[in-house]
Design a protein around this nucleic acid. Structure first.
Lengths: 144, 144
DNA sequence: AGCCAATAAGCAATATAGTTGCATTACAAT
DNA sequence: ATTGTAATGCAACTATATTGCTTATTGGCT
């Protein structure tokens, strides 16, 4: 995702031992400018290294639990994964193309939401706010 | 969902023939103050009438395609369904409890987003904006 | 009313995404 | 080198949703 990120440091910063597999998964997630599904990540890794599907799922869960990867829902069936917001990387909404399944990051300022007033009155615990725009991407529009 | 809604009329308003099953599915979706999963809807219907699981899925797809029911994604694995926004029923964000899976509707004004500027510059087609708040609901908080 | 065509619903099989339990391997500390 | 702990692999399994095909229902026509 960005030149500020040293993935090894990112792992140690959340007190996770660095392993080959974790680093690989994190690299695939981080080096993409858009979020990927677990399947995408697995297929990408499989091309160059030997890794098990289950390991990918487990590592993704782990990275999400430790807050360095973000799990995003889509209009479709599978979750997508991207680097979690951090100092160099603001929270931002995503666009999901219903036709091709591509998910893209939108500019952080393109759609913003004020959560303060809700936080004050909401009786439960709020962990995150996810904003997703669904539609048809420009490539798919062209093809129709 | 509300006394303004006559489900039969709602069906005909989008040029769908009224069938027993469609009406039943729409009633379950509409009479709930919070969105339900396809499984929830099926289980509810099953208690009183004979209906097939697949029929429920197909009717939900149909109602979503015709714009009277809204498909919502969750932090979890299944989609949830609620009445689609209409004149009496503004678009609104939802809260999803990661622990019990309950999804609730939030006040339409609690979180709002301005989509105009994005629409102007975004090269694809925008169909909807989904805002979901994830966390732990007050009931689950109590239990912990 | 009775028949036909079209549409809806049912049923079984299958697909997809993710999860679990247990065996194996790797690695750090001694 | 040995041992204990954590990570990974493998196979089986679960939950959710979808498909292909059959059967039932409905609405229009004579």
């Amino acid at each position: 995702m960005c030149h500020h990120c040293n993935y090894q440091e990112l792992l140690t910063s959340v007190k996770l031992e660095t392993t080959e597999s974790r680093l690989r998964v994190l690299e695939v997630v981080g080096n993409n400018s858009f979020p990927l599904s677990a399947g995408d990540i697995y297929k990408t890794l499989e091309r160059s290294v030997s890794i098990n599907r289950v390991t990918v799922y487990r590592i993704l869960d782990l990275l999400v639990d430790h807050g360095i990867v973000e799990r995003l829902s889509t209009g479709g069936r599978s979750a997508y994964f991207g680097l979690a917001p951090n100092d160099y990387h603001q929270p931002h909404p995503h666009f999901y193309c219903k036709q091709c399944g591509q998910m893209d990051c939108l500019n952080p300022d393109s759609l913003t939401v004020k959560v303060e007033s809700l936080s004050k009155t909401f009786p439960g615990r709020i962990d995150k706010v996810e904003i997703r725009v669904d539609g048809i991407c420009k490539n798919c529009l062209k093809q129709n």
